[in-house]
């Protein structure tokens, strides 16, 4: 039983995800997309990067890759699935979650630390936190602005599916929104609580020598 970190040709946070899980004592391995998921997969991470170069639309090609069909089937079986950054874009493009992550409001890549507020603490990805808790997580993306049409956004809010919103250090949503996301959404869950996508990088906030370790609580979903 191992967590599969799916590696596409342009993935670049796959090694980091494995290293962070390994640090938490969670068995994980990189799985080359063409090889498919192991039968007894215990969890799936779609890591950050530029899956197929993303010359088209971020995540659009990967969403149509055969392995993504396997990921969807695993998610339907209740296997925890987390899409991070490019993995979040793949998650939207493949319909694991609704909405889209598109070009940042200022059309620039942002690599910095962002504060996010935990909107619900009863999912596998947030059980380590309290509702309303403020986390400091690294972001690194050019296309991280969450967008959804009114009906979809209202449904997401109504179904309580927003996991994290960008906020300032005191937890005030609206005061900080690095990419201009609708509703300052930084992460959300799919039809099941065991499927989540987020733009911030939990694997970059797990090893203690690199600074705050708020990401570890998110990755504990795979423990």
């Amino acid at each position: 039983m191992t967590v599969a970190v799916v590696q596409f040709g342009g993935s670049n946070c796959d090694r980091d995800a494995v290293r962070a899980l390994d640090h938490l004592g969670i068995e994980a391995e990189r799985v080359w997309h063409a090889d498919g998921l192991p039968d007894d997969v215990a969890g799936v991470i779609l890591p950050g990067g530029f899956s197929y170069g993303d010359y088209l639309r971020a995540g659009a090609m990967a969403a149509r890759a055969p392995v993504t069909e396997e990921v969807r089937a695993a998610a339907d079986r209740g296997v925890p699935v987390l899409g991070v950054c490019n993995g979040a874009q793949v998650g939207c493009e493949s319909g694991l979650v609704p909405g889209a992550f598109t070009t940042n409001a200022d059309a620039r890549f942002h690599c910095e630390r962002a504060h996010v507020r935990v909107e619900r603490a009863d999912t596998p990805f947030t059980q380590a936190f309290d509702e309303g808790q403020v986390l400091k997580l690294p972001i690194a993306h050019g296309e991280g602005r969450f967008e959804a049409d009114d009906a979809t956004y209202d449904r997401l809010v109504g179904e309580n599916r927003i996991l994290f919103r960008y906020c300032d250090a005191d937890g005030a949503v609206g005061a900080a929104n690095p990419n201009g996301s609708r509703g300052a959404v930084a992460g959300l869950i799919g039809d099941r609580e065991s499927v989540a996508v987020l733009m911030p990088h939990p694997e970059r906030a797990t090893l203690p020598q690199l600074g705050p370790t708020d990401g570890a609580g998110i990755l504990q979903a795979f423990a």
Binding site: N12, C13, R15, D16, R19, A20, G48, R108, F109, H110, C111, E112, P138, A140, H201, E203, R204, L207, Q209, L210
Partner: peptide, 25 residues
């Protein structure tokens, strides 16, 4: 400038741009 560069991928960056030098683990 450096905000547009991913300076953290690879999980080695102990001291990030903005200081006198970068520090890599």
């Amino acid at each position: 400038v450096y905000r547009q560069y991913d300076h953290e991928v690879g999980l080695r960056t102990v001291v990030r741009p903005g200081a006198d030098a970068a520090f890599l683990s």
